[in-house]
Design a protein around this nucleic acid. Structure first.
Length: 301
DNA sequence: GCAGAATGACAAG
DNA sequence: TTGTCCTTCTGCG
């Protein structure tokens, strides 16, 4: 379920499975037949994420551009184990059939990746890729990201900070969960206009995203609660549940049950007591999505 | 079986 | 602000 961390994790998974190979590209569902043909049999060079956009470069300057939207998924699977390729195993590994509406499938003798439910799946030229990237704000997951660009937009805007954080042209990669959780972590009133935000508050939020998003990439799961963040940073959790090996099969699949218990400060906790002050967590729609916040902890100061 | 929801983003009015 | 699209899964009858 896609905020920026999902796409960056996915880029890593795709690279681990396909970089340097020439996957067969198809559209079992039939809605991406032409695009698939345009990419089929070319060398998969490199996948990269910018915010919630994924770009996979194939030889000949041909790109696959994917946006998962709200409900899309792109599952990378190793259907034949390594043993099948070092001569120690002569078992035939049948190609798993496409289940459901698979818009796009990448296939090698070893791996496959199935794309479903994406809001955007198209082919693109380098110029088209550049144009998309140019529209995006800085992505905290990219080392070259310039937070100053986000601050310029935020500090001059009358729009609520909860609205600005969801605007991918302001800051790329944050979605509805990180928005609610980060605002809570910094006790920021979601309705405070961007231009009334203190610089040091913005800096703290940015730094927090730089801390939290990579954890999301590593675990394939959004983690925001202080105790869990601490555990992850300390490496104090069951590593068996947290696949990190770039060659491990499970590394390319969603965590089976989540490495950590799925819990948040305010996200989806409307009506329940705030974990800090006991006040009822509230919800309302901002920027087209349900915002969750604590009216007491996140009161305007 | 079927409504409703889901970590998103658009266009139309 | 509302409607629309993308698909799967859950919960309720």
């Amino acid at each position: 379920m896609p905020e920026g961390h999902t796409l960056h994790r996915l880029a890593g998974s795709l690279n681990g499975a396909f970089a340097g190979t020439r996957p067969a590209v198809s559209s079992p569902q039939g809605r991406f037949v032409e695009g698939a043909a345009w990419l089929d049999g070319r060398t998969f060079l490199d996948a990269e994420a910018w915010g919630k956009h994924l770009f996979a470069e194939f030889s000949g300057e041909r790109y696959l551009h994917v946006h998962l939207g709200l409900i899309g998924s792109f599952d990378v699977t190793a259907y034949a184990p390594d043993a099948a390729f070092d001569g120690s195993d002569d078992t035939a590994y049948p190609i798993p059939p496409a289940v459901g509406a698979v818009r796009l499938r990448l296939l090698t003798p070893r791996h496959l990746a199935d794309l479903r439910g994406a809001t955007l799946c198209r082919t693109a030229t380098p110029e088209e890729v550049d144009a998309v990237v140019a529209r995006l704000g800085p992505d905290p997951l990219r080392p070259d990201a310039d937070p100053e660009r986000a601050w310029r937009r935020i500090s001059t805007s009358a729009r609520p900070i909860a609205d600005l954080l969801m605007d991918q042209a302001v800051l790329a990669g944050v979605g509805n969960v990180y928005r609610a959780e980060v605002l809570f972590r910094h006790r920021v009133d979601p309705f405070r206009p961007g231009r009334e935000l203190r610089r040091r508050t913005f800096d703290a939020i940015w730094a927090d995203l730089v801390l939290l998003l990579p954890i999301g990439v590593q675990l394939g799961q959004i983690v925001t609660m202080a105790d869990q963040v601490e555990d992850v940073l300390a490496g104090d959790y069951d590593p068996a549940l947290v696949p990190t090996s770039p060659t491990g099969v499970s590394a390319w699949r969603p965590n089976p049950h989540g490495a950590l218990e799925r819990r948040y400060y305010v996200y989806k906790r409307d009506g329940m007591p705030c974990l800090t002050c006991g006040s009822r967590v509230r919800t309302t729609v901002v920027a087209g999505r349900n915002l969750f916040w604590c009216g007491r902890c996140q009161r305007r100061r």
